[in-house]
């Protein structure tokens, strides 16, 4: 679908080095990196807003490296939306259709269809300066989607929205992807990657550090940078029943579920998990007996991989490791509080 081959671009002091990515049809691909890592530049190269110094961009088996911007079948949604202030919502969405030689009826039908998908039917006649951040983002997505691009490029689409709006928009992006739209989404937020993507690439200082399925990248970080950046390993698909999360192998977790979610993912941050040789008598409601599989040394601490039916990653200090003499094969207990578990819908 979308392939980047050895893409290189020098911009002043900064450069993108030899970027190779392969995005399959239907993927929700997240490019994860800190500010200034080169994420936006990469999107702009794909959209044709910048020209690479070296390398190739392929879209649907066609090379588009030097194709004009307006002829590429990729739609980009900018971080600051870039809606036209001299047009209302409908005119913004209609803008890209004017050159598609559609009949007025087809044009209206297309606008209504994507206004429905993005839930902005009631905003069509509003001026864009009267819209909230979440509404602006939906309009920008509708304006791009209405052109039916082969690949949708999203530049930090959730970063300027408050937490409540993010949930709704995430859901919408997931639905859009499920309807068959291939998405390349750049962000600095690993939670977005976990919640939305099936593939992730981590970029730092213009280089792709690791690329693979979301699960692989988060479970097996290629190096310490990725491990620190992704910051989390214990994330699991779960079904929620009230304040219980049901994981694979019938593992049940006590959770706090004020939003009454029914399914999603849970994150248990390593630093909130306590390990002990015996079961602890504490206020933690999640206590599991497990087997220690691995002890992985890091720069300032150790990571224990404990199998409780699912593999949990736990961080402990060198002092604790020596005190309890944990070694692979040891049986031990892990415990964590219900409110140490983060839910993602």
């Amino acid at each position: 679908m979308l392939k980047l081959k050895n893409l290189t671009k020098q911009l002043g002091e900064f450069s993108l080095h030899n970027i190779n990515l392969d995005i399959e049809p239907g993927d929700y691909f997240i490019l994860l990196g800190r500010s200034g890592a080169g994420k936006t530049i990469l999107l702009e190269l794909i959209a044709g807003l910048l020209q690479p110094d070296l390398g190739e961009i392929w879209l649907q088996e066609e090379i588009i490296t030097h194709t004009k911007i307006q002829l590429r079948k990729v739609g980009i949604v900018f971080q600051d939306y870039a809606l036209f202030p001299n047009m209302n919502v409908r005119e913004n969405i209609e803008y890209g259709l004017k050159r598609d030689k559609l009949s007025p009826a087809e044009c209206n039908q297309r606008i209504e269809e994507y206004a429905h998908v993005t839930e902005i039917n009631h905003l069509l006649h509003r001026n864009i300066d009267h819209l909230s951040g979440g509404e602006l983002q939906r309009v920008a997505i509708a304006r791009t989607l209405v052109k039916k691009p082969s690949c949708l490029l999203l530049d930090e689409p959730l970063s300027s929205l408050d937490v409540q709006l993010r949930g709704g928009l995430r859901n919408m992006l997931r639905q859009i992807n499920k309807s068959g739209v291939t998405i390349l989404h750049v962000t600095h937020d690993y939670q977005e990657a976990i919640a939305l993507s099936n593939k992730v690439a981590v970029i730092n200082q213009g280089r792709i550090i690791q690329c693979g399925s979301t699960k692989d990248v988060f479970r097996n970080p290629a190096n310490e940078f990725v491990a620190n950046f992704t910051g989390v390993k214990n994330f699991f698909l779960a079904e929620f029943k009230g304040n219980t999360a049901l994981l694979k192998n019938n593992i049940q977790l006590h959770i706090v579920n004020p939003d009454r979610l029914t399914e999603g993912k849970v994150i248990i941050q390593s630093k909130y998990i306590v390990v002990s040789p015996e079961e602890l008598n504490s206020s933690s409601t999640n206590n599991f007996r497990g087997a220690l599989r691995q002890v992985i040394p890091h720069q300032s601490n150790y990571e224990l991989v404990v199998d409780i039916g699912v593999e949990l990653s736990v961080l402990i200090s060198e002092e604790s490791l020596q005190k309890y003499a944990f070694a692979p094969g040891t049986e031990l207990w892990v415990s964590f509080k219900a409110n140490a578990i983060q839910l993602l819908d």
Binding site: L49, R72, F84
Partner: peptide, 15 residues
């Protein structure tokens, strides 16, 4: 006029 608006218009297929 923000240049990004013109880039957005080009991306939407305008000459």
């Amino acid at each position: 006029v923000p240049y990004k608006l013109e880039q957005a218009a080009l991306n939407l297929g305008a000459s």
